[in-house]
Amino acid sequence: MKNKYLLACLLPLLVLVAARLPYAPDPLPFRYPEGWPAPVYAFDKNPLTREGVALGRRLFYDPVLSGDSSISCSNCHLSYTAFTHVDHALSHGIGDSIGLRNSATLVNLAWSRSFMWDGAANHLDVQALAPISDPDEMGENFAHVVKKVQRSRAYRGLFYQAFGDSNATGQHLLQALAQFQLTFVSANARYDRVMRGEAGAAFSEQEQKGYALFRTHCGSCHQEPLFTSGDFARNGLPPDSLLKDMGRMRITGNPEDSLKFKIPTLRNIEFSYPYMHDGRFSSLQQVLRHYAQRIPLSPDERTDLMAFLLTLSDKEFLFNPNLSYPRK
C-alpha cells in the first residue's frame, strides 16, 4: 500500500525495460492419465512453464541450495531410483532432523496433500525449506541461499525467463523447484498399461493372483492408482527405541496420531529400497514378512504379491532424460 504511488511512477519505466527483453514463458500443460483423480496442487497459483521447470531442474541439481554449498537435492533424491537415496537407511547430509528419516520417494507429488513422513510440510512449495535451511537458524539461512542465487549471473537470466524478474526471490525459487518436481509423474508402469487395456499388456497368472491379494489386503491404504490414499496410518511397525520417532503426533500433538506415518506410494517400489520411514527393511521380502505377521499371507501368496509389486516399476519414468542432471 505504501508503495502504491511509487509503483505508479515506476510502472511505465518497467514496461519500457520489459519491452526490450523477451519475457514470454512457454506454458506447459500438466498431463496425467485419464481416470486419475484431479491433482491437488493449485497450478493456477504457480502455472507450469518450460522455463520454470528448467530453472527448477537446475536448482534441484545445484549444491548452491545447501547452506554450505556442499550438497544438492539430488544427493538424497536420485532420478534413477525414483528420487530416493538408495542404500542409505537414514539420509546423510545436513540437519539433524533430516538424518532421522529415510529419504522419501518423489513421485506424483501433484496429488499429495502433505509432505514428509509425518506431514510436516503442508505444501510442495514450502517443503524445500526443510532441507535447505539449517534447522537451528529458523529460516534465516534460506535468506542467505537466496542471496547466493541472486549473485549468480546465469541465474538472473533464468529467473527472468521463468518469472519476469531477474532478481531471485524466495517465492520464485521455491516455486521453480516445485514446478520441476511436479513433472515427476510416473504413470507408465506395466500395471498402468494393463489397466488401460493396451495391446500386448497383460498380467501373468502369478501377477494376477498377486493383484487380487493386493486389493484385499493392501489397497485400502495403498490406494490405486496412486498407491497411497495420502492418509496417515500405523502399519504395525514397532517403534525404534533409539530414534523415538512419534510420526504424525509430532505435528498434531494428538496422542491418537502416535506412530502414524504417511502412507507411501508403492510405485517403483522395486527401486526405492531401503523401506519404511527409518529404512529398517532392505528388501521387499522383509517388508512382506513384516505384513505376514498380521495379515495371513502364505509364502506362496507372498511370492504372488511380490510379482505384482514388480509390475509397478516404470522404466520410462526412471530413465526419463528430462528429469536427470541437466547437461548444458
Binding site: A42, K45, N46, S97, A120, A121, N122, H123, L124, D125, V126, Q127, L129, A130, I132, S133, P135, M138, G139, E140, N141, F142, A143, V146, T169, G170, Q171, H172, L174, Q175, A178, I251
Partner: peptide, 26 residues
C-alpha cells in the same frame, strides 16, 4: 494463507518469519 504455498513480498519465506522444519509462519 498458511496452506497456500510460497508467497511473495512481506510473506516471502526468506524474510526469516517462516519455520523450515514444519510449515508455518512465525
Amino acid at each position: 494463507t498458511h496452506v497456500s504455498g510460497a508467497m511473495g513480498g512481506d510473506l516471502d519465506p526468506s524474510k526469516g518469519m517462516y519455520w523450515a522444519w514444519q510449515s508455518g509462519y512465525i
